Amino acid sequence: MARIAVYVSGSVATFKAVSLVRILQKQGHEIRVGMTPASRHFVTPNTFYALTHQPVLTDLWQTNQSPVPHIELADWTELALVVPASADLIAKMANGLADDAVSSSLLATKAPVMLAPAMNSQMWLNPATQRNLKQLVLDQRIILTPETGMLAEGYVGKGRMMEPEEIASQVDKWFANQNRLAGKTILVTAGGTREAIDPVRFIGNRSSGKMGLAVVQAALAAGAKVIAVIGQVQVEFPNHPNLMVKKVTTTAEMLATTAASFEKADALVMAAAVADFRPAVVADQKIKKQISQDELTISLVKNPDILATLGAKKNHQIVMGFAAETNDLLQNAQVKLAKKHADYIVANDVSQVGSGFGVATDQVTILQPNRAPEKWPLLSKQEVGERLINILAKRWQQSK
């Protein structure tokens, strides 16, 4: 099984880390523990030493294990679990601070890091905490969202740490997901394209890139190599050794860049919202408004269809496209499925509340040839991305 470092910070939920260590040991994992000074007000290092039969990391200067114990633990680790993760430790991790043994070891480790936050609901909802959590997600840290329940203060609120049994289940799922797509390369487009009218103005759309980012993150979590071709986005893509990001502006640039990587890809996920038309002529200088002018006519020409072009060229690749519609969702998506040579179309009605551009959720329907449409409930875009990657993984598994 795996080598798991459990890092314990100060919280009333600290006692639950003891139960978690026992559960993980029963599952066959090798466990070592690091503790912040605050955590030792709730549980002593002797408790974890008795369970693990390993020295507990508590001080940057202790030398009972090695001359540099926090680095030794960081290098030993295959998965780092921060349980509980206090608001203070979350802030340190988000900002790269390292003023004690735990924060220093977490900064040094190359292992994946999973956090189970625990704090008062007001601390959890504070903009600073939410900002820090967003940074940790960008850093590819896995956040186990706390539950709503009875808090230490005697009232119900969000911030109660996930129970040890559920944390252990999440660890199991994470290990099962690892390397499912090792050896696969997934090509993902994200964001919107822009077509210039003049040096100042352009034709664009409302795409934020959130859905494309969710697909990229899910693919990386499953061990795939990812090539992301991105237009205009409102989100930040992570730094990851398995991720190559290529930035483009126009639909023609996105087609050329995507086509250049298509042959070596095992799947194409077209989550970008591309401009279907572009101005026939782009003005060299800003178009000036004339006093007597009440109208401006711009002649548009059709852009190349990236999904149809690459779908027609597919060989071994799985091709998945998106259909953002405002009416006749299934009819329009079925036409796209056939005309664009796609294996899957992910259809969403962007006129619905909570679905579409710029929001954190989506309600999609999956279409594929000779199958009835599969409507999914309203989900976070992260969950949609994970489900889409699961579709690819199952298809490759079935083809073996």
Rank of each mutant, 00 (worst) to 15 (best):
N179K: 14
N179W: 02
R180A: 06
G183F: 12
K184M: 10
K184P: 01
I186L: 13
L187I: 10
A190G: 15
A190W: 02
A190Y: 03
A190R: 03
G191N: 06
G191F: 04
G191Q: 05
G191H: 03
G191Y: 03
G192P: 00
G192W: 05
R194E: 12
E195I: 07
E195W: 01
E195C: 06
A196D: 13
D198Y: 01
D198M: 01
D198S: 03
P199R: 03
R201W: 14
R201I: 13
F202V: 02
F202G: 01
I203Q: 07
I203W: 08
N205C: 10
N205K: 10
R206H: 14
S207H: 09
S207D: 14
S207R: 08
S207M: 09
S207P: 13
G209S: 09
G212V: 07
L213R: 12
L213E: 08
L213W: 00
L213S: 03
A214L: 05
V215Q: 10
V216W: 11
Q217Y: 01
A219K: 11
A219P: 06
L220N: 11
A222K: 15
A222Y: 07
G223S: 07
G223R: 08
V226N: 06
I227N: 08
I227V: 15
A228D: 01
A228G: 03
A228V: 01
A228R: 02
V229P: 02
I230L: 11
I230R: 15
G231M: 00
Q232L: 11
Q234D: 13
Q234V: 00
V235Y: 07
V235D: 09
E236K: 08
F237K: 00
F237C: 00
P238R: 10
P238V: 07
N239M: 10
H240F: 01
H240C: 02
N242Y: 11
N242Q: 15
L243C: 03
M244A: 14
M244G: 02
M244V: 14
K246W: 07
K247S: 15
V248W: 00
V248F: 01
T249R: 09
A252G: 10
A252N: 13
M254W: 00
A256S: 15
T257W: 02
T257V: 14
T258Y: 11
A260W: 00
A260L: 04
S261W: 10
S261A: 14
S261P: 01
F262E: 06
F262A: 04
E263L: 09
K264C: 11
K264S: 15
K264H: 15
A265M: 07
D266T: 06
D266Y: 05
A267H: 05
L268K: 06
L268A: 11
V269F: 09
V269Y: 02
M270V: 05
M270Q: 10
A271I: 06
A271R: 08
A271D: 07
A271N: 09
A273W: 09
A273E: 12
V274N: 04
A275V: 10
A275E: 12
D276E: 12
F277S: 04
R278H: 13
R278L: 01
R278I: 04
R278Q: 14
P279S: 13
A280G: 04
A280S: 12
V281L: 11
